[in-house]
Simulated assay, not measured.
Amino acid sequence: MNASTNRLSSSMRSLFCLILAAASLQAVAQSPDRAAAIALEQRGRTVEAELAWHSIAASDPGNAEAFAHLGLLASRQEHYADAIASYNKALVLAPNMPGLQMNLGLVLFKANQFPAAIKNFSALLSLHPDAATVNHLTILLGMAHFGMGDYLVAIPYLERSAANDPQSLTLRLTLAHSCLWSKQYDCVLSVYKQILALNADSAEADMIAGEALDEKGDDSGAIGQFRAATHANPSEPNAHFGLGYLLWKQQHFDEAAVEFEAELNINPTQGQARAYLADSLVEINQFEKARPDLEQLVAAPNSSAMVHRDLGIVYGETGHPEDAMKQLQQAILLDPSYVSAHWRLAKIYQATGNKALAKSEFEIVSTMKQQSSRPLTQQLDTTPSSQHP
Rank of each mutant, 00 (worst) to 15 (best):
A23W: 01
V153G: 03
G316Y: 05
N96M: 08
L51D: 14
D323H: 10
A58E: 15
E65K: 09
M143H: 12
E295K: 12
R344Q: 12
S75P: 04
L357C: 02
S31M: 13
I155N: 01
E363D: 11
P234Q: 07
K119L: 12
P301N: 11
E211P: 00
A132I: 13
N354I: 03
Q101W: 01
K355I: 14
E78Y: 07
H240V: 10
C187V: 03
A162G: 03
D165W: 03
L196S: 04
L297F: 13
Q250M: 07
P375N: 09
W343C: 12
M12P: 00
L189Q: 07
I284Y: 09
G99I: 11
N285W: 15
V107F: 03
F226L: 13
A324K: 03
A3K: 08
P321S: 06
L213W: 02
S168C: 04
Q296N: 11
F16K: 01
H240P: 07
P115I: 12
L277I: 01
N267D: 15
I155R: 04
M1V: 06
M12N: 06
A197G: 15
R274L: 15
S385Q: 09
E48S: 07
T318Y: 11
Q167F: 04
L264Y: 08
A111M: 07
D293M: 15
F226H: 06
Y151H: 06
E48V: 04
G62F: 13
N233R: 04
P301W: 11
Y185E: 05
S304L: 06
A35L: 14
F146Q: 04
R344T: 00
Y151M: 05
Q370E: 11
V28N: 10
L8G: 00
V92N: 10
I364G: 03
Y185W: 14
P61D: 11
E259P: 02
R13F: 08
S9H: 12
P237V: 06
E50F: 00
K289Y: 05
G210Q: 02
F67M: 09
H128F: 06
G224Q: 10
L345Y: 07
L152M: 10
H231V: 15
R274V: 04
T269Q: 15
F362C: 06
C17H: 10
A49P: 03
A132H: 10
A3G: 05
E322Y: 13
A162Q: 00
Q286F: 02
A203W: 00
D279H: 09
D218I: 11
E361F: 01
G224S: 15
P321R: 08
N112T: 09
L345A: 09
S360Y: 05
K110D: 13
